[in-house]
């Protein structure tokens, strides 16, 4: 498990760096696909099989196809030259390192985990063995449609608004031009 985590983590972080550092937009998009597939592997390691499948289908499938389609449509290829040794890239690198250390320290000390490495409070009822016995997707679905029904419905409203907004934006521009 540690070996798989190491490989997937290196690939995910390399993909993340590729998104920011690539010269061409298409290479950024491909790096993002690498990042998302590696993240799906990490989700599998964390016993989240359904979310891993959704990650592949929605992100690496639908969202990235949309991105690549728009990149091919607009072809904004070499408009922007990024030189890794430029001042703002160096500044950004330092900033990213500082952010990582600060967020990492905050996450691993004090808020959820004590200094001994134990969680504050009791563990929840959904232990991996119980979830496995009941079925991963069944457990997730039951929770989604009972305890978390309100966020689910709000999300459906958000998707409706996004669809209407996208149609309006594309229609409106075409009429005005």
């Amino acid at each position: 498990m540690t070996v798989i985590f190491g490989i997937a983590a290196v690939l995910a972080f390399g993909g993340a760096l590729g998104v920011v550092l690539s010269q061409r937009t298409l290479y950024s998009a491909l790096s993002l696909v690498l990042n998302m597939v590696s993240l799906a592997v990490l989700f599998l390691l964390l016993d989240a099989q359904f979310v891993a499948a959704v990650q592949i289908i929605v992100y690496a499938g639908a969202v990235m196809v949309l991105f690549v389609f728009i990149i091919a449509l607009l072809s904004p290829g070499a408009e922007e030259r990024v030189r890794p040794l430029e001042l703002r890239m160096l500044f950004g690198g330092v900033l990213a390192a500082v952010f990582t250390v600060v967020i990492g320290r905050l996450a691993l000390n004090g808020i959820t985990v004590t200094n001994n490495g134990h969680f504050h409070g009791a563990l929840g009822p959904f232990s991996p063995s119980l979830v496995d016995a009941h079925g991963q997707v069944q457990t997730l679905g039951e929770q989604l449609f009972t305890t978390y029904l309100l966020p689910f419905e709000v999300t459906s409203l958000l998707l409706l608004v996004a669809a209407v907004g996208a149609v309006y934006l594309s229609k409106h521009r075409r009429v005005s031009s």
Binding site: F13, V20, G92, G93, L95, F99, I103
Partner: peptide, 17 residues
């Protein structure tokens, strides 16, 4: 968690830079 923090930082810097 460290990987998550590192990815978030790289993304934030990407937005800024």
């Amino acid at each position: 968690l460290i990987l998550s923090a590192a990815m978030f930082s790289v993304g934030a810097v990407g937005v800024l830079v």
